Structure formats: C-alpha cells, structure tokens
Simulated assay, not measured.
Amino acid sequence: MAEDLKIIEGSKVEIYLSLIPQIKGLLDGEPDLVANLANVAAALKEQFGWLWVGFYLVKPATAVDGDKELVLGPFQGPVACTRIKKGRGVCGASWQNAATLIVPDVEKFPGHIACSSLSRSEIVVPLIKNNEVVGVLDVDSELPDQFDETDKKFLEEIVAAIKC
C-alpha cells in the first residue's frame, strides 16, 4: 500500500497520469469504502488544491417517506451540506441523471446549493455499482471554469477504481 503521495507539477494530463497509479495503490487491498473515499479525497485535494473535494453517499432519508438522499461522506475542505435530495443542486442532478456534470459557473446552475460562498465552479462524478448510483464525487473550485473534459475523463477513471 502506498502511503506517501508524490505531488508533481506539469500539465493537467501529466498530473493525472502521475496521480492515478498512486490512488490505485492507496485503494489496492483495502476493502473499507470509507477509508478509500477518505484517501481519494485527500489525494485530490493535496494534488490540485481545490476548494472542496468529497463524497456524498446514497442512503435512506431521515424522513418517513422512504425516499433516499445523498448524505455527506469523507471530504477535504470547508464544512459542507449534510444531506441533498435527488435532483437538487449539482450533486442531486448528477445522481438523478447518472452522469458527470461540469458547471463552469455555479451561479448560473438552476437550483445550485451554495454550501460555500467561495465556490465558483464544480464537477460531480457519479459512483455507479450494478448500474445504480451509490454516491457522487463532488469537487468545487474557487475559480470559474476550472473543470473540463480532461478532468471528467480522469476523475471518472478514479471513481471507477473505487470498489463500492
């Protein structure tokens, strides 16, 4: 198991190509989901310095209506929203659509949930097991238009390496 993270500089592609094997090393042989999510969030935050990196997991809602909701899981960054309904905000929309969402300007996203007023752009990648979304990776940046198709490609690869 790799426990040291080698932070590199370079192009975004070079950074991901260095980081992904390291993340896979952290995940290799560790069956605990919470530990793995915590290490992935920490590795991404350390390498990129984004405002917020973390996971929300699909769990039964606290209300008696029997619905499910996203519940805050391991993360790095400022205090976050604890529960998100399906379809609400970027995370809820990613869950509902089972698709990665890139939001260049969170102020222009209908129904955006502002957990931090510092957030300017966001990417959310669903964690899928047996064709069902079981959680999402949520990444926020203080910079507008921070995320692109390169981030989408490599973050989806990282999420796919997590055994849910």
Rank of each mutant, 00 (worst) to 15 (best):
A38M: 06
I7C: 02
I23A: 01
A42Q: 14
K45I: 00
L33G: 07
L26M: 15
D28M: 06
V53S: 12
P21V: 09
E9N: 14
L51W: 05
G49F: 04
I15R: 13
D28F: 06
V34H: 01
D28N: 13
I23H: 00
F48V: 05
S18C: 04
I20S: 01
G54V: 01
G10N: 08
W52L: 14
D32E: 15
E46R: 12
L17P: 00
I15L: 04
E46M: 09
Y16C: 03
I8Q: 13
D4P: 00
V40H: 06
G10F: 08
K12P: 00
A41V: 06
Y16F: 15
G29A: 06
K24R: 14
A35S: 13
S11Q: 09
L26S: 04
W50C: 04
E3S: 09
I8L: 15
E30G: 01
P21K: 05
L44N: 05
G25S: 14
F48K: 05
V40Q: 06
Q22K: 03
N39Q: 14
I8D: 12
N39D: 11
D4L: 12
W52V: 10
P31I: 10
V40T: 14
G25A: 14
K6T: 15
E9F: 10
V13Y: 04
W50V: 01
P21E: 10
A43I: 04
G10S: 08
D4H: 11
E46K: 13
E14F: 00
D32G: 05
V53H: 01
L37G: 09
E14W: 00
W52Y: 15
G29C: 05
K12V: 01
E14T: 04
L17T: 15
K45P: 00
L37C: 12
K24Q: 13
K45E: 10
F55G: 01
I23V: 13
G54N: 08
P21C: 08
L51M: 11
E46C: 00
L51G: 08
K24N: 11
L27A: 11
L51F: 08
A38H: 07
A41Y: 04
L26H: 06
P21D: 09
Q47Y: 07
D4W: 05
L5S: 06
V40Y: 03
L5D: 05
D32I: 11
Q47C: 09
I15S: 02
G49W: 02
E14A: 14
L26F: 15
P31S: 14
L5V: 09
L33D: 07
L19K: 05
L19D: 07
S18T: 05
D4V: 12
W52F: 15
E14G: 01
F55S: 03
W50N: 06
Q47L: 07
N36C: 13
G10Q: 08
L33F: 07
S11W: 10
V53A: 13
L5T: 10
A42E: 14
E9D: 14
N39C: 05
E3F: 11
L33N: 09
W52P: 12
G29R: 02
L27S: 11
L44R: 02
I7R: 05
L37T: 06
W50I: 01
